[in-house]
Design a protein around this nucleic acid. Structure first.
Lengths: 380, 380
DNA sequence: AGATAGTGTGAATCAGCGA
DNA sequence: GTCGCTGATTCACACTATC
C-alpha cells in the first residue's frame, strides 16, 4: 500500500495507535469492507453512489433468481427493488461506522436521490439539509424535450434525530459568504480542465469526477481538522485529496483497480496545507464561560453601577454577588432581569445590557471579552 | 357553485359538452373525489401535498418573537408508513385521471419529497426533471445549526416511460430566459405582500400559499391554452387563479371550507390575460453573491496568500475556510478583519484587500469578477 | 412629499451544560 | 434520565411611523 497518509498533526503523540486503514484506499466491495472496519470509527461520510439503476455489476438482487420475461413496469420495479436493497445495505454498513455525532453526505440526481433519501429516513438518519449543487456549466439538453438538468442534490444527515452535537462550522460558513449565512444552494462549475483526471489516451479516467471545490465546502462546513472521513465509493479519490489537503484523515473503498491506481497517484501529489491556514473560527458557544460575577470582581463593573438597555428604556443596578436589580426591585441574573423587564421568556443579558462609558453606551459583552483575554493570558 | 369558469376559448364550440366539474372547486377528500372523476380527463396535475413537517417545540427568533409554524392538523401523520400510504393513494388516483400524454408536478421539501419521488417511480411515473425553486427571500436559520433552507423541490414526470408526446414548450421557455435553455433551478420570491391572502384579522389565510410566478412557469412550460389542470390540494387556489389567467381550465379539490371560500373569491376576481405574462417569469437579479471561499476554492487565492491594503499598512492571510487572519491573529470575514485593523465599524473587504500579483497590487474584487464570469448563470 | 427608521414575518424537522 | 440555567442566534422585503 503506498504511503498516502497525511501528516498526523494534532495526534502526533498517538501515531502508534492510528489504525492501519487510516489514510488508505481499501480495495473491494464497500458493504463487506465497511463491515470489516470497527464501529463508530469515522466522523463523517461522503458517498457518491452509482446513479444508474441498470448497473448490474453494482447491484445484487436480494435473491439471485433469474427473472422471466416480464412487462416493463414489473421489470422497472425489480430494478428499483434491487437498487433499494443495495442502497439499504451500504447505508446500514455506513451507519454502523459513523460516530454518534457524525454526519453523512450523499450526492445523487433525480434518478436515485429520492430512493436514497427515503431509505435514509427509514434507517433513522435525520436530515439536516438537502443541498443543491447548481452547475454553472451543465451539459445542455440536446433534444429540447426537458429543462436543462443543471443541478445535483446532496443530502446531509446526522445519525439520528437526537444527535445534536454534530459539527457545523456555522461561523466559518457565514464569514466566507460575506457575513450572511450560507444557503442550501451552492454554485460550482463541474470538474473540467486541469483538475479532471485523464488517462494516457486523454479520455477521462472517471465518468463522474466531482469538483474539489464541492468537496471542500462539504468538508470545511461539517468536519474539523484531524477528523476522519469515509468515502465508500472512492472512485478517483476527490474526497481523499481534499481531505488530505485540508488536514483531515480519509478512508476510501473502491472496487476498480484503474480508479485505485489513479487515486493513489493523485493522493501522493497532494500537499497538506499548513495548519495555520486550516484554523477555523472558534464558535462563540465554545468560548470559555465567564460568569457575570467575574466581571464585577474584576472591577470592570463595581457594585452599584447602573446598567441600561441600548435605548435607555430600562435600568438596573449591579450588586456585589453578580446579580442585578431592576428599578422595580426584582433581582436576578442579567438574563432573567433582562427578560423580565421586557416581558419576554428569555434574553441574552450580555448583549442586552449596556453601561455608560464617558458619553457612549458600551455593551457589557465587551467587558466579558476583556475578562476572557485576561484569563487567556494567565494561561487558565 | 359560483361561476369560476374561464372563458372557453379554443373549445367554444364544445361548450355544451364541457363537464360540469370543469373550472370548479370540488369539496372533499382528494382520493375519493378523484375516484369519482372520469379516467384520462386532465392534461396536467399540480400537487402541493402536506409536507409532513415534524416540528419539535417552539422556535423563536433572536429578538424572541415566535415563528408562526405550520402546525395544522392536515400536516400531521403518525409515521412514515402512514405518510407513504397516503401518498401512494393520492398518486394512484391522480395517475388514473391523467391523459396518456399528461404530466404531473409535485412540490415538496426534504421532509417529504424523497418519499414522494420514490413512490412516483414505483408507480411507474417517469421523471422528466427535478426542479429547484430557489427562494430569493427565505427564512433564515435562526439558531445557526444548519445551512439556511433556501429552496424547495418540484418533480415533473410523465405518466410512464414511453409517453413521449407530453407538452413541453421548449421555445417559449428559452425565449423567456434570454434565449438560453431554461435550467432546472428557478429563482422566485416567496409569496408575500399584496399577493398573499389575508383574513379579516390580517393573518395569512393559508400557511403555505405558493407564488403565482412559480405556477405560471409550471403551466406555461408544460400545458397549452385550453388544457385542463387538476390540483388535488387546491388550498387557496393559486393553481386555479394562474390557470384561469393563462387561458387554461382547472379542477380543484379541497377539504377545508375556509380555503374554498377564499379561493372562490380569488378566482372570481381573476381576469384572463394575454401571454405577455411570460416576461415576469425571469426575475432579474443583481450580480450573484460570490462567497469569498469560492475565490479561494477557485485557486485564485490559495490558503496562505498574504493580503494587504492598498498602501501596505496592514496584512492578513487567507485561510482555507474562507476566513482571513490578521497579523495580530484575529480571524473573521474579509469585511470584519478589514474593519478591525482600521478600527472602523465596517469595511468592504472586496475593495479594501489587495494581493501582490507580480510587481503590482491587485484588488481582490477583480478576482471576484473573474469567478463571476466563470460561473455566469442566467437568473443567478 | 420624500427620506429614514423601526417593525413584522415567511413550509423550520434550529442548544448545551451541569446538577 | 430530568430539570433548570446560561446565553447563542436572522435575511430579504413589505409595511408603518416619524421626521
Amino acid at each position: 500500500m503506498p504511503q498516502l497518509r497525511s501528516p498526523s498533526r494534532s495526534s502526533a503523540a498517538l501515531a502508534t495507535t492510528q489504525p492501519e486503514w487510516l489514510d488508505t484506499i481499501i480495495k473491494g466491495d464497500c458493504v463487506s469492507r465497511m463491515a470489516a472496519l470497527p464501529a463508530h470509527s469515522v466522523d463523517a461520510i461522503f458517498a457518491d453512489p452509482p446513479y444508474n439503476l441498470q448497473l448490474g455489476g453494482d447491484l445484487t438482487r436480494p435473491d439471485q433468481s433469474k427473472v422471466d420475461a416480464v412487462d416493463d413496469a414489473w421489470d422497472q420495479f425489480e430494478s428499483f427493488a434491487a437498487y433499494d436493497a443495495f442502497t439499504r445495505a451500504w447505508l446500514l454498513a455506513a451507519r454502523r461506522l459513523l460516530k454518534p455525532n457524525g454526519t453523512i453526505w450523499v450526492i445523487g440526481s433525480y434518478h436515485n436521490i429520492f430512493r436514497v433519501g427515503a431509505i435514509m429516513q427509514d434507517l433513522g438518519f435525520w436530515t439536516l439539509n438537502d443541498i443543491v449543487w447548481r452547475k454553472s456549466n451543465p451539459m445542455p439538453n440536446f433534444r429540447g424535450r426537458r429543462f436543462q438538468n443543471a443541478h445535483e442534490t446532496l443530502i446531509w444527515a446526522s445519525k439520528d434525530k437526537d444527535a445534536k452535537g454534530y459539527t457545523f462550522n456555522y461561523d466559518a460558513m457565514k464569514a466566507a459568504n460575506d457575513d450572511t449565512q450560507m444557503r442550501s444552494d451552492w454554485l460550482f462549475p463541474i470538474c473540467t480542465g486541469g483538475e479532471r483526471l485523464k488517462d494516457a489516451e486523454g479520455s477521462k479516467t472517471h465518468p463522474t469526477q466531482k469538483p474539489e471545490a464541492l468537496l471542500a465546502r462539504v468538508i470545511l462546513s461539517s468536519t474539523r481538522p484531524g477528523d476522519t472521513i469515509l468515502d465508500p465509493f472512492f472512485g478517483t479519490g476527490t474526497t481523499g485529496a481534499v481531505a488530505k489537503r485540508l488536514g483531515r484523515h480519509f478512508v476510501g473503498i473502491e472496487r476498480e483497480d484503474s480508479y485505485i491506481e489513479a487515486a493513489t497517484d493523485r493522493l501522493l501529489s497532494v500537499e497538506p496545507l499548513d495548519a495555520d491556514f486550516l484554523q477555523t473560527l472558534t464558535p462563540k458557544r465554545a468560548e470559555p464561560r465567564v460568569p457575570f460575577s467575574s466581571v464585577v470582581e474584576a472591577g470592570l463593573l463595581p457594585p452599584g453601577t447602573e446598567l441600561t438597555d441600548a435605548k435607555g428604556r430600562w435600568q438596573a443596578h449591579v450588586r456585589a454577588d453578580g446579580t442585578i436589580a431592576s428599578s422595580t426591585g426584582e433581582a436576578a441574573s442579567i438574563h432573567r432581569v433582562g427578560a423580565r423587564v421586557q416581558g419576554l421568556d428569555a434574553c441574552n443579558g450580555w448583549t442586552f445590557w449596556h453601561v455608560r462609558d464617558g458619553g457612549r453606551l458600551r455593551v457589557i459583552d465587551e467587558l466579558r471579552q476583556i475578562v476572557r483575554e485576561r484569563i487567556a493570558v494567565s494561561g487558565a
